[in-house]
Nucleic acid binder design. Structure first.
Length: 512
RNA sequence: GCCUCGUUAGCUCAACUGGUCAGAGCAUCUGACUCUUAAUCAGAGGGUUCUUGGUUCGAGUCCAAGACGAGGCACCA
């Protein structure tokens, strides 16, 4: 790459993010150094740099070089090569100490004017916090006992022309942390670790399922009608086909088609979209796992759920007992299982089998009961009273059938659906059914609009192709859905879903 | 969509009831320093107090509207 000609001195206002004033001054100092680097014949944007060891590995190499207190440090350490970002810089005249960070950790670099030679020293003058460099040098300990790479050569890898945040506090402003996640990942306390944990959790969920013989599949995210859940979809349009489309709100109906197709154990782990409110527990796009197992039922799904969570907790480094959202949660014990009606009776003190008792209890709590289906009232009563009491991991089982249009009814009890929801710290984490595979009943339920539910909050959306699939014979099956973001919240003790989503939704930043 | 709270230098934060209140640390620049650890020391520069309007002799501070965010509600059966 040919050297860049010196830029005009007023180039500091060209950046898209410049607001003038001091920002321009801070950037100018960095652009001056960038120019100086090119004048030295160096490419300030670097190039391939082979053979760098991870800093964690280098730190391990340094262990045996330690000497007892009082003895002079070993001076025969190996020569190492590392690369990373300058996080801290301390200058003591012609001696510069740098804290260099890579994906695995941090290590101190010492650059001495005498040690690196005059050519390298000119480069040292161009270094800023945030720059990326490569270093070759001997591994040893400084006089104060800090593991240090004593640099003999310096390779400039990339200039940073933006000022990093406060070196001690990092980014604190939640808005900036989320909008500039790249900065938050560099400087935020535990941020990178949290997203590493997320990656491991997702990998673990897949592995737990693979180990049980599941196949991972990919269903359509663009659909002509959104089924499998009650939620408002995002709407879009296909130009060439001139057709309206919606983004999926659940994975369910296509996975079940695959059960019909003989893929007896299938799962999808992917993004779903719901055009609804934002909260510490809701983001419009979020990651869902759904898994279906032929010849299983909701009880087998409980066992699977516990296995998925326990395995994930292991790889995430989650302690057996976690403090989260003001709850102390023991993940090591088998999860409690309690019937929906029993819980209502226990918490509310009403008779769940008596609609009049339910209506009275709901009305006394300000829940609108007029003209609404008894099971809708019951469900609202449950949410208002029971959910927040479920601190320890709890499978709530056997739901009112009317609010479960995709679920098989209990044998001999048509009013009870074989469904569970898993609650932890008052939050819904998972939802599972013994899957309804009777095509005629399914068709009828798709047509049933429960009293008191608006059309767009109902699951009563006919999917004729899905009915046709069921008519070909779907094996009896258990099905499970887990909110992966919420699972990551639990396993990393995060208070907001936005803390575990790299780029949560935001309104556009105002430019002025 | 509704309610409450917040927004001050690149970052992290100050500024009692409206009256030298535009301030500090980090960062930046200049200088000193070959063993520092958020290095230290001396000096310098840096502001549309989110925006617009209003009240007032006087507004970072009070009022109104708007932008963005946080929490709550609604929504999420």
């Amino acid at each position: 790459m040919p050297p860049v000609p010196p830029a005009p001195s007023d180039d500091s206002s060209t950046g898209p993010l410049q607001s003038g004033g001091i920002a321009a001054g801070l950037e100018k100092a960095r652009r001056d150094k960038l120019r100086k680097l090119t004048e030295l014949g160096l490419d300030p944007w670097g190039s391939r740099f082979d053979g760098a060891a991870s800093i964690a590995a280098v730190r391990e190499q340094g262990e045996p070089l330690k000497r007892p207190e009082g003895e002079p440090p070993a001076d025969d350490g190996p020569t190492v090569r590392v690369a990373g970002r300058i996080m801290l810089q301390r200058s003591a005249g012609s001696l510069v100490f740098i804290s260099l960070a890579d994906r695995s950790g941090r290590i101190q670099i010492m650059l001495g004017k005498k040690q690196v030679g005059p050519e390298n020293w000119k480069v040292v003058d161009c270094l800023d916090l945030g720059d990326l460099i490569g270093v070759d040098g001997r591994l040893g300990y400084s006089k104060t006992g800090e593991l240090t790479v004593f640099a003999s050569a310096l390779t400039f890898l990339t200039k940073s022309i933006e000022t990093p945040p406060d070196k001690f506090h990092g980014l604190v402003d939640t808005e900036l942390k989320q909008r500039m996640r790249y900065v938050d990942l560099i400087h935020g306390e535990g941020v990178r670790e949290r997203f590493i944990a997320r990656s491991r959790i997702v990998a673990s969920v897949r592995q737990t399922l693979f180990d049980r013989g599941y196949l991972e599949i990919e269903g359509p995210t663009l659909q002509d009608s959104a089924g499998g859940a009650a939620a408002r979809p995002f709407k879009t349009h296909h130009n060439a086909l001139d057709m309206g489309l919606v983004l999926r709100i659940a994975l369910e109906l296509h996975l079940k088609r695959l059960l019909v197709g003989g893929m007896e154990r299938v799962f999808e782990l992917g993004r779903v979209y719901r055009n609804e409110g934002v909260s510490p527990r809701h983001n419009p796009e979020f990651t869902m796992l759904e898994a279906y197992e032929a010849y299983g039922d909701y009880v087998s799904m409980m066992d699977l759920t516990e296995a998925i969570i326990r395995d994930a907790a292991k790889v995430a480094g989650t302690p057996p007992t976690v403090q989260w959202m003001g709850h102390e949660i023991d993940l090591s014990k088998p999860f409690r299982r309690v019937k929906y009606d029993d819980l209502l009776r226990e918490v509310v003190g009403c008779d769940p089998s008596d609609p009049a008792s339910i209506v009275a209890a709901a009305a006394s709590r300000g829940i609108d009961t007029a003209g609404r289906h008894p099971d809708v009232i019951k469900s609202e009563l449950f949410e208002a009273t029971c959910e927040s009491t479920l601190s320890a991991p709890t499978f709530v089982i056997d739901y009112p059938a009317a609010i479960c249009p995709l679920t098989k009814r209990k044998a001999g009890q048509p009013d009870i659906a074989e469904r569970f929801e898993l609650y932890v710290a008052g939050m819904e984490l998972a939802n599972a059914y013994t899957e309804l595979n009777d095509p005629d009943l399914q068709e009828e339920l798709f047509r049933t609009q429960l009293a008191g539910l608006a059309a767009d909050e109902s699951m009563a959306r006919m999917d004729t192709d899905f009915i046709r699939a069921l008519r070909h014979g779907m094996p009896p099956a258990g099905g499970l859905g887990i909110g992966i973001d919420r699972l990551v919240m639990l396993l990393t003790q995060s208070a907001s879903i936005r803390d575990v989503i790299l780029f949560p939704i935001h309104r556009p930043q105002t430019e002025d």
